[in-house]
């Protein structure tokens, strides 16, 4: 089986996404987990490019890598002493074993289902515009305007709410 360059890049991206995700699960060091998560986000962004969703990919980079990852690092630095970092992200075996069994079972069923489903003629890219930013904006500001507004109100509420929660000193 020969692989085109495009397919090789795709496989690399997929691995970049999934392998760090596994590291997130199994690492005992919270900093490693955080950096692994960073790579997963990056890989996801790459997958969005493959899906023809440039805008999503950029947003992913800006929001997740620029925002969420930084917040995570802040959270870690604000709450833990660095010297005991090696066992900061341990798992509870009592939960991990049954949880792992259940997760594996679910995954097996779903992957089986994904394989068995007769997907409609795949790869038909004619329906999705080449450049998605403008139509996406149209959708957001026309059909989904209400949801858009609700989300913006939610963000405002989050902005205020997180300030209130974080600064309240509980005695």
């Amino acid at each position: 089986m020969t692989l085109e360059l495009r397919e090789m890049v795709f496989i690399a991206t997929a691995l970049l996404t999934t392998l760090p995700a596994l590291l997130v699960v199994f690492s005992r060091n919270i900093l490693y987990s955080a950096f692994a998560l960073f790579f997963t986000f990056l890989g996801t962004s790459g997958l969005y490019f493959f899906l023809g969703a440039e805008f999503l990919a950029i947003t992913q980079v800006v929001v997740y890598i620029g925002g969420v990852s930084v917040i995570l690092l802040f959270a870690i630095l604000l709450t833990r002493d660095i010297d005991e970092i090696k066992k900061t992200n341990t798992m509870s075996l009592g939960r991990a074993v049954p949880g792992g069994v259940a997760v594996l079972a679910i995954s097996a069923v779903f992957i089986y289902a994904i394989g068995e489903t007769k997907w409609a003629a795949s790869g038909d890219e004619t329906g999705v515009p080449a450049l998605t930013v403008k139509p996406l904006g149209d959708l957001l500001l026309n059909k989904y305007l209400f949801a858009f507004e609700v989300v913006s109100v939610l963000l405002l509420a989050v902005l205020i709410g997180s300030l209130v929660i974080a600064r309240r000193s509980v005695k």
């Binding site: 999934t18 995700a21 596994l22 997130v24 699960v25 919270i30 955080a34 995570l72 959270a75 870690i76 709450t79 900061t88 992200n89 341990t90 798992m91 509870s92 939960r95 991990a96 949880g99 792992g100 997760v103 594996l104 679910i106 995954s107």
Partner: peptide
Amino acid sequence: AAGLLTAVSKRNII
């Protein structure tokens, strides 16, 4: 799957 397992089993809230 990774996310679910992490959420269930990790001790650290982060």
